[in-house]
Amino acid sequence: MRKKTTEVPERPGSEPTRRNPTQQRSRERQERILAVATQLIATKGSDQVKMSEIAERSEISIGSLYQYFPDKSSVIRTLAERYNAQSRRCIEGALSAVEDAQGLRTAYAQLLDLYYEIVLATPAMRDIWSGMQADKQLLELELEESRVAGALLAKAMLRVNPDSDAQQVADAAFLIWQLGEATMRLAISCAPEEGRRLVDVFKRMSLREIMEPVTINMPDS
């Protein structure tokens, strides 16, 4: 007879695969896991959170937890992807309507203010960012999201200034967004008054580049 084998839940160190729940009960369990993880990360920081603690607080076995999230990086990645999706919707909604210089200035300034308020109201975001910096794959996720956001900003900039050098605009927009992420991390690590000032300084600095992009040098006729 063929010996019956027992499936062993995936453990950290194996190829990470994340379960995609389709049944209502599974989705509810996943949401509970993520809610618990968010609370623990906000309280203790991502480095101090253990998978066993997430499982205990979620009232599931460690084996069941690994079926949904094979390691802590996959938990952090899922939370980051959700925050990124929320941010992207805000960015698309604000910049898609930009048609002139004043609209671009207003939309960008309001986006920075809104983003700062969101991260202030979501303490776990700082520690999720911290966890991403120590993981190469998660860091690549952050960079890719900055490229996406930068492309949306560049598209709006080129609508307002169609004679600009498209490549330089794209590079500037990518850099502005990545530096914006770093500014937000710094700002929420400071006292609220200082953090607000830092965001305002970055806004002024970046707006100078956004509103006066490099134009293409047209050949003399």
Rank of each mutant, 00 (worst) to 15 (best):
T183M: 02
T5S: 14
L138I: 04
M51P: 05
M184S: 09
A172I: 10
A156Q: 07
F69I: 07
L40A: 00
R2V: 13
M218I: 12
T43S: 05
T122C: 00
Q30E: 08
V8F: 07
E181K: 06
R126Y: 15
A149P: 01
L186M: 13
G93N: 13
V119K: 00
V8K: 05
F202R: 02
S130V: 08
N161P: 07
A166M: 03
E194P: 12
R57M: 01
R185Y: 06
R57P: 00
E81K: 12
A191E: 12
W177A: 04
L40K: 02
P70I: 03
A173E: 00
S73Y: 08
R197V: 11
A94H: 06
A107D: 07
V199W: 02
A182E: 06
E92Y: 14
E15I: 12
S87A: 13
A35F: 02
T38N: 04
L198C: 10
Y83V: 06
T17M: 15
A94I: 15
R147Q: 02
T106A: 14
Q167E: 07
E81Q: 14
Y66I: 04
L139I: 06
V75S: 03
R27G: 07
N20F: 09
S130R: 10
G131W: 03
T17H: 12
P12W: 07
K44R: 08
S52A: 06
A109R: 11
Q168H: 14
K136T: 12
I60G: 00
I128P: 01
G103Q: 08
M157N: 04
E209W: 15
Q102D: 15
L207C: 03
A121C: 01
